[in-house]
């Protein structure tokens, strides 16, 4: 990897973190999008696309909900794709490598989100003076800090890493690589389970199995499942609206509890 390519990857890292900071979270930060862009920079578009898809599946459950700082999909996604291209790692080995990198990126993210306290206090001072421009400046100060931190992380990883990581990969015994392959098949279960926590309750648990049966037993693809799912959700939404009307009408003789 040339110095120039490492710089470009660093800039991509900055853009990746800026997606959720400055661009309102348009999903550019996801491995599915970053993968092909890394491929373009390193001259192997095809591998970039395929790595992006593999990493997306593993990292699907990792999202920044609430105030938590999740493992960093930006640095993990960019560097794992880059190493897959430059060191010729196969998909499962690169996926396994993405996780330690994402954990490192998480630490960097935590540091920036703590250090931004400085800019918050700058904003407080500007507010004290009624200085609108000062608040603007404080915001962009935080934004620049995010960009700089992720540029440095991805640039350093890309520039030093390709040979260091290459040597590291050569040392890994075959059974461990095979194990990573098994693990990379299992890891999407974690992402899915995290999503289930967000969606599942006692009333709607049955719908999970409809989706599962459609694909596992009937072989329906994702588009098909989305269409069927939308139809079911629409019908149920309509039913709920009707029910409230009916419920209001029969509210006087409510037997629901006993039946």
């Amino acid at each position: 990897m040339s110095l120039f390519q490492a710089i470009l990857l660093g800039i991509l890292g900055g853009i990746g973190i800026w997606d959720s900071r400055v661009m309102g979270m348009c999903m550019i930060e996801r491995p599915l999008i970053l993968g092909p862009l890394v491929g373009l920079i390193l001259g192997d578009f095809q591998t970039g696309i395929i790595m992006g898809a593999a990493l997306e599946l593993v990292m699907m459950g990792i999202v920044g909900i609430g105030s938590a700082t999740p493992p960093d999909t930006v640095s993990g996604g960019i560097l794992a794709t880059a190493f897959a291209i430059t060191s010729g790692l196969d998909v499962s080995a690169a996926v396994a490598l993405a996780l330690p990198i994402a954990t490192l990126g998480q630490i960097v993210g935590t540091l920036v989100r703590t250090a931004n306290g400085y800019f918050i206090h700058r904003a407080d001072k500007a507010a004290e003076k009624g200085d609108y421009k000062g608040v603007d400046k404080a915001l962009w100060g935080g934004a620049i800090l995010f960009f700089a931190a992720y540029f440095t992380l991805v640039f350093t990883g890309a520039y030093l890493g390709s040979s260091v990581i290459g040597a590291f990969v050569a040392m890994i015994p075959g059974s461990v690589t095979a194990g990573f392959k098994v693990a990379s098949g299992m890891l999407p279960a974690l992402g899915i389970a995290i999503l289930m926590q967000l969606l599942l309750n006692k009333k709607n648990v049955a719908f999970l199995f409809i989706g599962w049966a459609l694909t596992s037993l009937l072989g329906v693809n994702t588009v098909g499942v989305a269409v069927i799912g939308t139809t079911i959700a629409y019908v149920i939404y309509q039913n709920m609206s009707n029910k409230t009307v009916v419920a209001e009408k029969v509210a006087s003789d409510d037997l629901g509890g006993e039946l």
């Binding site: 899915i192 409809i210 799912g229 079911i232």
Partner: peptide, 12 residues
């Protein structure tokens, strides 16, 4: 509900 159906399909 829609999300869960898709998530169920993803399990498979």
């Amino acid at each position: 509900i829609l999300g869960l159906i898709v998530v169920g399909s993803m399990c498979a």
